[in-house]
Design a binder for these strands. Structure first.
Length: 413
RNA sequence: GAGGGUGUAGCUCAGUCGGCAGAGCACAAGGUUGUGGCCCUUGGGGUCGCGGGUUCAAGUCCCGUCACCCUCCCCA
C-alpha cells in the first residue's frame, strides 16, 4: 500500500463479487414478490429538504439529532441525504397528488440510505433498503397483507426470522400512556441502569426495550400500553392477530416493542434474528396514520416497512446457481480471430461465455479457466476441441460452429 | 458520544527476552515438448498503518495519531 492510495470513506463499502450477487438476488426476489402483490415501483431522490425528516422522523430522534448528512447546496438550500425511505415516499404521494386519483396506492422502493453512525457489524453509513408503503387503507387487512408480503420475501430468500408485533395506538392515548409510564419509572429509577435513567426523560418507551437484566426486572410490573388504548384500537389489534393466524404466520406479541421513529401509530412489527450479531432487526415497519396529514396532505391512513439489504446479505450463504460457463481459449495468437467470432456466436445463442483474454502459457490459461469456474473449455485451433472440466473428457470437432450445437444442449437448461 | 480489540508481503497471519523480515495461500517459471484442480522445485515480491520518543540497536518498549473490527447507544 503506498501513499497514493485512496481508501473508501469510513462507513462506506464496495459491494462486489459474491456480495454483489447476493445484493442483486435480494433485490430481484423482493421485486418479484412486490409484483405479485401488485405494488408499483417509485424511484425516489436521495436528497430531500431537511425539514421533511425533521417533521416526519421526529425532531428529537437520534436519526435527526445526530445521524443525518446535512449540508447546504450551492443555492443555499438546507438538504439532507435521506436517512430512510418512508418520508420521501409520503412526500411524493402528496406532491404528485396521487390521492387525487382516489382509491388506494401501493408503492415499493429500493436504494441507499445514509446515517452518520459508528460502523459495526451489519451497520454502515451508507446502507441499502427495500421497502414498501400502502397509502389510503385503514383496514387491518392491509397490515396483515404487508406483514405476509415481508414474510414471503424472507421465505423466498431462505431466511428465518421471528416476527414480533405490538400496537402503539393513537397519539393521544400513547401520550397518556407515556405520562403514566414516566411516573412509574420515576419511582423505580434507582434500580435502572445509567442509560435508562436518562431515557426516563428522553424516551421512556425505550426503557421497556432495555437489555439490562435489572431494568427488565424492575419494569416487569410497569403499566402496559394496551391498558390505555380505547376499545376500538384493541379490537383492531385483535383483528390483525386473527388474520396473521389465519395466514399461518407465527408471531410473538411483544408489548415492549417500540420503534425509534415518531410517526408510528397502532401496528408496529419487526423481523428479528440472533444470527448476525447485535444488529438483529432485519425488516421492520408499522402503521403511520397521521403522517400524510402532518406533511401537508389530506388525512390518509398508511403503513409500510423497510428491510436492510446488508443484513439480509449476512443471512444468505449462496445464491441460486447460474448457467454453466464455457471458456474459449485460442491455442495461439493466429486463432484469436476465430475465437473472438466463436465467443460472439455463443453469446448470441445465449451461452455464458468467457473468451480468455490474457496471454500466457496454456497451463496458466487453464488455471484461469478453472478459477473462473468453467464447466467447459473450447480449445480453438485447426481442429477445435471441447473439454469437460468435470470429467476431463475431450472431443475433437471439424469446425468451431459444430461445437456450438453440441454445447448448447449441455449448457442451457 | 463511550468502551474494548487489531494494524507486519496482494490475502490470512507468525515474529519469544529489544539483536539479520518469516510461513501458508496467491502470482511467475519449471517438473509434465501447447491441457486445470492434487503434489514437488525454484523465483519475484516489505515505508512492519503514520509521526515522534527511549536505546549502541525498535516490528517488539513509551507517547501521539489514523484506519479497520467488535460492543454500548441507535436503527434496518
Amino acid at each position: 500500500m503506498n501513499s497514493l492510495e485512496i481508501k473508501k470513506v469510513r462507513g462506506f463499502q464496495d459491494i462486489y463479487g459474491d456480495n454483489a450477487k447476493k445484493y442483486r438476488f435480494i433485490v430481484e426476489t423482493a421485486r418479484e414478490v412486490f409484483e405479485k402483490y401488485n405494488f408499483q415501483e417509485i424511484i425516489l431522490p436521495y436528497v430531500e429538504d431537511v425539514s421533511l425528516f425533521i417533521r416526519s422522523v421526529g425532531e428529537m430522534t437520534d436519526i435527526v439529532q445526530k445521524e443525518m448528512y446535512v449540508f447546504e447546496d450551492r443555492g443555499g438550500r438546507r438538504v439532507a441525504l435521506r436517512p430512510e425511505g418512508t418520508a420521501s415516499a409520503v412526500r411524493a404521494f402528496i406532491e404528485e397528488r396521487m390521492y387525487a386519483k382516489g382509491g388506494y396506492h401501493k408503492l415499493f422502493y429500493e436504494g441507499a440510505m445514509f446515517r452518520y453512525e459508528r460502523p459495526q457489524a451489519g451497520r454502515y453509513r451508507q446502507f441499502h433498503q427495500i421497502g414498501a408503503e400502502i397509502f389510503g387503507v385503514d383496514s387491518p387487512l392491509s397490515d396483515a397483507e404487508l406483514i405476509k408480503m415481508v414474510k414471503d420475501i424472507l421465505d423466498r430468500l431462505g431466511i428465518e426470522a421471528r416476527l414480533e408485533i405490538n400496537t402503539l395506538g393513537d397519539f393521544e392515548s400513547r401520550k397518556r400512556y407515556m405520562d403514566a409510564l414516566r411516573e412509574y419509572l420515576k419511582k423505580t429509577k434507582d434500580t435502572l441502569c445509567d442509560i435508562c435513567k436518562t431515557r426516563v426523560k428522553t424516551n421512556p418507551l425505550r426503557v421497556l426495550d432495555c437489555k439490562v437484566e435489572q431494568c427488565k426486572q424492575s419494569t416487569e410490573d410497569a403499566p402496559k400500553i394496551t391498558d390505555f388504548l380505547p376499545e376500538e384500537r384493541i379490537e383492531r389489534y385483535v383483528k390483525l392477530k386473527e388474520y396473521l393466524k389465519a395466514l399461518g404466520i407465527d408471531f410473538i406479541e411483544n408489548p415492549r416493542l417500540v420503534r425509534g421513529l415518531d410517526y408510528y401509530t397502532d401496528t408496529v412489527f419487526e423481523f428479528i434474528t440472533e444470527k448476525i450479531g447485535a444488529q438483529g432487526t432485519v425488516a421492520a415497519g408499522g402503521r403511520y396514520d397521521k403522517l400524510v396529514e402532518q406533511l401537508g396532505g389530506p388525512p390518509t391512513p398508511a403503513l409500510g416497512f423497510a428491510a436492510g439489504i446488508e443484513r439480509l446479505m449476512l443471512l444468505i450463504d449462496k445464491v441460486p446457481s447460474e448457467n454453466l460457463l464455457t471458456v474459449v481459449i485460442p491455442l495461439t495468437d493466429e486463432f484469436n480471430l476465430t475465437a473472438l467470432k466463436l465467443s460472439s456466436l455463443m453469446r448470441e445463442r445465449g451461452m455464458k461465455t468467457e473468451l480468455l483474454l490474457k496471454a500466457g502459457s496454456l497451463k496458466s490459461k487453464m488455471k484461469l479457466a478453472n478459477r473462473f469456474g468453467a464447466r467447459f473449455v473450447v480449445f480453438v485451433s485447426e481442429r477445435p476441441e471441447l473439454k469437460d472440466m468435470e470429467t476431463g473428457e475431450q472431443e475433437v470437432f471439424e469446425t468451431a460452429e459444430d461445437i456450438v450445437d453440441v454445447l448448447e444442449k449441455r449448457v442451457l437448461v
